[in-house]
Design a protein around this nucleic acid. Structure first.
Length: 237
DNA sequence: AAGAAAAACAACCGCCGACTG
DNA sequence: GCAGTCGGCGGTTGTTTTTCT
């Protein structure tokens, strides 16, 4: 058995190896990884075959970046479970334990770095994100202004054609009111939506909280380290 | 534009628990 | 009860890609 170990191929998988493994699993299903190599004609050991399938070839895997929503789940579950990556992965369909583990290590595991390094990097990252955020807001506002102006021109044109007059403000159509006095018509339901609604609003709420965190974090990092999840979470933002 | 540093990704290793003969 | 096998998990390392200076 020992002499066979030397025969196992190592290193990156080739497209042909992937094809053989996929074909084998399609026919025989997952499991019995020890026989996979023999049956599929692969020079890979059981562990390597399983890992390749689980982490890369499985059809239900989700590709692409970890979303902010997934990130929050990871943070939350890591606070609860610690490094139990497979447990965390079960709450994120399409994501593997390996992926989550790598993501955590890259973004949150700052062991061994000094507080000064943390604070400098944090500051730079915050500034960058803040600039990006402001730029995004500016673009949105410009776009909205443009649309509003078009709407307004249309309505005015319509009014002129129909010779409409609005002698009192309460007779002004709601659309026109909104264009002129948008802030006057924000009601509570809007705020509730901001707290519980779509991801866009959720992100704004999150950002607001995070910008406020900046001072706290920088203050803390000058006095000493914050340990555990909080520091990890903050250091990312 | 180029080199350095950081981030992201892929894969291996050792350990452990469950299962089986 | 025990040894061997298998599958799964978490830690770690190596490689590639992206970003920064």
């Amino acid at each position: 058995m020992e002499e066979q170990v030397g025969l196992w191929r190592k290193g990156p998988w080739t497209a042909e190896e992937d094809r053989l493994l996929i074909k084998h699993v399609k026919v025989h299903g997952e499991g019995r990884w020890n026989s996979v190599a023999r049956l599929a004609g692969l020079k890979r050991n059981a562990k390597s075959c399983r890992l390749r399938w689980v982490n890369y070839l499985r059809p239900d895997l989700k590709r692409g970046k970890i979303t902010p929503h997934e990130e929050r789940i990871i943070l939350d579950l890591h606070a609860r479970w610690g490094n139990r990556w497979s447990t965390i992965a079960r709450s994120l369909p399409g994501r593997t334990d390996n992926e989550i583990k790598n993501y955590w290590r890259t973004h949150f595991n700052n062991k061994g770095k000094t507080c000064l390094e943390d604070s400098i990097k944090l500051k730079a990252r915050l500034l960058k994100r803040q600039q990006f955020h402001q730029e995004q807001q500016k673009q949105l506002q410009l776009q909205k202004n443009d649309e509003d102006m078009k709407k307004l021109m249309l309505l005015l044109e319509e009014s002129e054609n129909n010779k409409l007059v609005w002698p009192q403000q309460d007779m002004v159509p709601q659309e026109i009111q909104n264009l002129f006095y948008p802030t006057m018509f924000v009601d509570d339901s809007d705020h509730q939506q901001a707290n519980t609604g779509n991801s866009m609003n959720e992100d704004f709420v999150l950002w607001d909280g995070l910008w406020n965190l900046e001072n706290v974090v920088l203050d803390v990092t000058t006095k000493g380290c914050v340990r555990g999840l909080d520091m990890a979470a903050m250091s990312y933002y």
